[in-house]
Amino acid sequence: MNKAKLIITVALILLVGIFAGSLGTRIYLKHQLDRSEIQRFRHHEDKVKRTMEQLTEDLGLDSKQQDEIRKIIVLTDAKVTGIRAFYQPDVSRLYDQSFALIKEKLNDEQKRKLEARHERLSRRSTDSYFRSLRIAQNALPDVAALKDRLGLNKVQEPQVARIIEDRRTQQQQIIGKYENKENPDLAVVRSELAEVQKIITKRLSDVLTEEQMARYRTMQ
């Protein structure tokens, strides 16, 4: 699903909650808060473990296969989490807009209660966002994988290793800078992370051949 379709879909869900009246509003808010509470305790390692247990049982995997397939599962989970995290600033913005629209329909006491709920949801959403960013770090390729997939020569290998490590370090610094701030602007975080990615891609293009860069992009 592309970005426009995703945002439109979420917007429609929010609007249904808004125009369904007070009952719809209560159901919508309760669903979002309960969902955030569940996600707060859901750890990606548990998902990976359950997936591996199921695959091992269904397919009769031996220990070597389990090790190799687990790496694939962890990488896939990290990439999927990264995609979700990329769109979360847009989703959070839509939530804020929906709360503002709902607030217009309420009296002062109801507004006070709604603001308290909005604050709790925003805090949980922000915590979830930064957890997702850290999980997504697992999707960064290691040098061994790049050497194998891209056919790095002896000159390229240490150069690429340094670039990839710089990317990891810089992205972790950005995450660390914002995750403990009160009400950080998630769009700004995303923008800074994207700028790091842009610079890293340029540095890699100076080291790799066009064919190697094409392969690298398929790994992202």
Rank of each mutant, 00 (worst) to 15 (best):
Y95M: 15
S63F: 07
F41D: 02
G151L: 10
K30M: 07
A116C: 00
V143T: 14
E109L: 12
E45V: 15
K103Q: 05
R124Y: 10
I38V: 13
R120A: 11
E104G: 00
N107I: 05
F86H: 14
K79P: 00
F41G: 15
Y129Q: 00
L106C: 05
D127E: 14
A145D: 13
R112I: 06
E45Q: 14
R120W: 07
L140E: 06
Q65L: 11
H44I: 15
T126D: 01
K47Y: 12
E119Q: 11
Q159E: 11
V80D: 02
A139S: 09
L114Y: 02
R42T: 07
L140G: 04
T51F: 06
N138T: 02
D34E: 12
E119C: 02
L150Q: 04
E53W: 08
G151W: 10
G60A: 08
E57Q: 14
L121K: 04
D96C: 10
K113S: 06
L114C: 01
I38H: 09
G60K: 10
A100K: 15
D77P: 00
Q39T: 06
G151Y: 11
D34I: 09
Y95T: 05
S92T: 11
S63E: 12
H43A: 04
A116G: 04
A136L: 12
E115L: 09
L133C: 07
V80Q: 09
Q97V: 12
L75C: 08
S98R: 08
